[in-house]
Design a protein around this nucleic acid. Structure first.
Lengths: 207, 207
DNA sequence: GTATAATGTGAACGGTCATTCACAAAGGAG
DNA sequence: CTCCTTTGTGAATGACCGTTCACATTATAC
C-alpha cells in the first residue's frame, strides 16, 4: 500500500502558499477559523507537514498579517501615483480599500477582535502597527492637502484619518453582522465621503 | 468531610448574577473569554451549577446581550429627555456611549467579530438587531433635526447614523488594538464630533 | 546511481472546555 | 419536624485541535 505520492515543494514556495491560504481563512471566519487541519487541506498537505514550514500557528498568522499589510500599503502607494490632489487621493484610497474589503472580507476588524484569550494580545501587537501605518498615511495626505490649501487647517489630520477609516469600517461591521446581505458597503462609503468632504474641504463642491 | 455549604439562591437571582458576570467577561475578553468555569467562579458557584439556570453557553450569551441592549437604549431615552435639540441630543448620546464603552469595554465590536466558527453566526443574529435599533434611534433624531431646520436636508440620516457610530467605534478599535494605552477615546470622539457637526449642521458653530 | 538533506505522512498525545449525572445540601410548605 | 422541590457539587465524559514523532518519500548534490 504505497503513500499517495505527494510532490515535495521547496519551503519558500510552501510558506507562500500557506500564508495565502491562512489569510483567506482569517478573512472568511476570523483567527479562530484558522485551523491547521483546514489550512493543510487547502494547500494539499497533511496537517503535520505544515510544521515543516512554520513553527506554529502564531508564526503562520504573522506571515498572513504581513501579506495583508502589503496589500494595504500598495493601495496607498497607488493612489499617490494616480493623482496629485489630496482630496482625490483620499477618495481613491477609500474606493480601493472598499474593494479590498469586498474581496478579502473584513480582515482588519477580525484580526483586531479575534478573541482568543491566550493568543489575542500577541496577535493584536502585530496588527496594531498595520493600522497605525494606514492611519499615518492618511494623515500625511491630509497634511499635504492643508499645505496646498485644499483642506481646512482647523481639522486635525488624525481626526480625519480616523473618520475615513470609520467610513470603511462601520459599513463593514454592519455588513458582517447582517451575514453579508442587505448592506451596500460601496453606497455607504460614497455617501459618507460626500458628507465628510463637506466638513474638511476648503471649497466644498469640487472633486 | 462536609460540603462547603454554599447558599441556595432562587433561579431568577442567579440568572441575573450570571448574565451580569457574563457581560463583564465578554467586555473584557470577547465571547471566547466567556468560559463556564470562570463565570461560575465569579458568581461563586461550581461550573455545573450554572446549568441549573441556563440551558448552555448560548443561552447565557443571549441574556448578556439583552443586558447590553438595555444599557444602550437607556442612553437613547435619557438624551431625548435631557434636551429637545437634535444636535444636542446627538452630542450627548455620543458622550454617554463613550462613557459606556470606557466602563464596559468594547462589547459591540467584540460581539460582532467574536470568531467562534460554529456559534459565530448564531450570535451575530442576536447582536445585529441591537446595532440596528441603535442606528435607527440615531437616524430618527437626525430626521427630527431636519424637520426642525437644525440639520441639513441633503444628508441621508442613515449616513449620519453610521458616521456617528464610527466616531465611537474607530477610537475604540484603536484603543483596543494598542492594549488600552496611549489612545484618548474621549478626545477623538469630541474632535470627530466637531468635524461631523460642520458637515451636517445648517448653521455650523452653535451647540 | 547513491548518499544525504529536505519534505511529507499517519497515528498518537495532551490540553482545554462545555456538558452530564448521580448524589448532597438547603429552603419552604404542611 | 419532615417531605419534597430547588439548588449546588465533584467527578467523569467526550469533542475539538494544536503539536510531536518515528518513519516514508522525494529532491538534490556529488
Amino acid at each position: 500500500m504505497p503513500k499517495p505520492a505527494r510532490a515535495h515543494r521547496r519551503t519558500d514556495v510552501r510558506r507562500e502558499q500557506i500564508a495565502r491560504a491562512a489569510l483567506g481563512l482569517v478573512a472568511e471566519g476570523g483567527p479562530r477559523a484558522l485551523r491547521i487541519a483546514v489550512l493543510a487541506r487547502r494547500v494539499g498537505l497533511a496537517p503535520s507537514a505544515v510544521y515543516r514550514h512554520f513553527h506554529g500557528k502564531d508564526d503562520i498568522l504573522v506571515a498572513a498579517i504581513e501579506r495583508f499589510r502589503d496589500m494595504v500599503l500598495a493601495n496607498v502607494r497607488a493612489v499617490c501615483i494616480e493623482s496629485p490632489s489630496a482630496l482625490e487621493r483620499l477618495h481613491r484610497l477609500l474606493r480601493r480599500q472598499e474593494k479590498l474589503i469586498r474581496h478579502n472580507a473584513p480582515i482588519m476588524p477580525r484580526l483586531a477582535f479575534g478573541d482568543d484569550p491566550t493568543r489575542g494580545a500577541k496577535w493584536r501587537r502585530r496588527v496594531a502597527p498595520v493600522l497605525g501605518e494606514f492611519l499615518s498615511a492618511i494623515a500625511d495626505i491630509v497634511t499635504q492637502g492643508q499645505r496646498e490649501g485644499e483642506i481646512r487647517r482647523d481639522v486635525p489630520p488624525d481626526t480625519v484619518a480616523l473618520m475615513l477609516f470609520g467610513l470603511l469600517m462601520v459599513p463593514t461591521i454592519l455588513w458582517h453582522l447582517r451575514g453579508g446581505v442587505g448592506v451596500n458597503i460601496e453606497r455607504h462609503v460614497e455617501s459618507g465621503w460626500r458628507t465628510l468632504r463637506r466638513a474638511v474641504a476648503v471649497r466644498p463642491g469640487r472633486t
